[in-house]
Design a protein around this nucleic acid. Structure first.
Length: 190
DNA sequence: TGGGCGATTCGCT
DNA sequence: GCGAATCGCCCAC
């Protein structure tokens, strides 16, 4: 089996609209636990739904830094969500990792999630954070070094797009990407 | 300094 | 399908 290249800086130093669809099918591991990315959303700095739209703040500071780093934020006071920072430094764009098809460390993911159904382990951004044990300590870490391991896909799967989920601004923009027909999506594509 | 609001999830109806 | 849980962030007062 061919060893796929590890994704690093130059891969992310492009528009989120190029990077996001190319992340579909890539492998994401955190401390050896994870699997295949099957769903992401793009957040561009000119996009009213992006955390960076209002300008630099303490929370979104990492988005204004270098591409190829992790931006982790707390959602609804409960969940931790993982993003990959994209584009040249200062552009403040990122890709939200919304769903993963579990492959490595499934036992650990089941334990952390308190569930056995493999389809429910990583089928949502908050679930991914919990299953991969992503937290505030990961905010600002480089994606090409431990604890992250991020590898390019061997071949591009069939990709579908649609409107993003759970936002109230720019709801019409079709910047959600996923594997067509996957059983591991947060929600089906219409 | 306080109130409203999330890039969500889960359980109950 | 609906609403509670839960709290940090952000802006208006």
């Amino acid at each position: 089996m061919p060893k796929t290249p590890r994704l690093h800086g130059p891969f992310f130093a492009r528009s989120v609209h190029e990077v996001a669809p190319e992340l579909i099918g890539a492998t994401l591991l955190v401390d050896g636990v994870g699997g295949t990315i099957v769903e992401v959303e793009a957040y561009h700095h000119t996009d009213p739904a992006a955390h960076s739209f209002i300008g630099p703040t303490q929370r979104n500071a990492v988005m204004f830094g270098s591409p190829g780093f992790a931006y982790v934020y707390r959602s609804y006071g409960i969940h931790w969500c993982l993003n990959f920072v994209c584009e040249p430094e200062g552009s403040a764009s990122a890709v939200l990792i919304r769903a993963i098809e579990p492959a490595e460390g499934v036992a650990a993911m089941r334990r952390r999630r308190g569930l056995s159904d493999i389809r429910a382990l990583c089928s949502g951004p908050g679930k991914v954070g919990q299953a991969l044990a992503v937290g505030p300590g990961h905010n600002g870490l480089a994606l090409d070094r431990a604890p992250f391991e991020l590898r390019a896909r061997d071949a591009a799967p069939a990709i579908v797009t649609g409107p993003r989920i759970g936002i109230s601004k720019a709801v019409e923009l079709p910047w959600r990407y996923g594997v067509a027909g996957s059983a591991f999506l947060s929600r089906p594509f219409r």
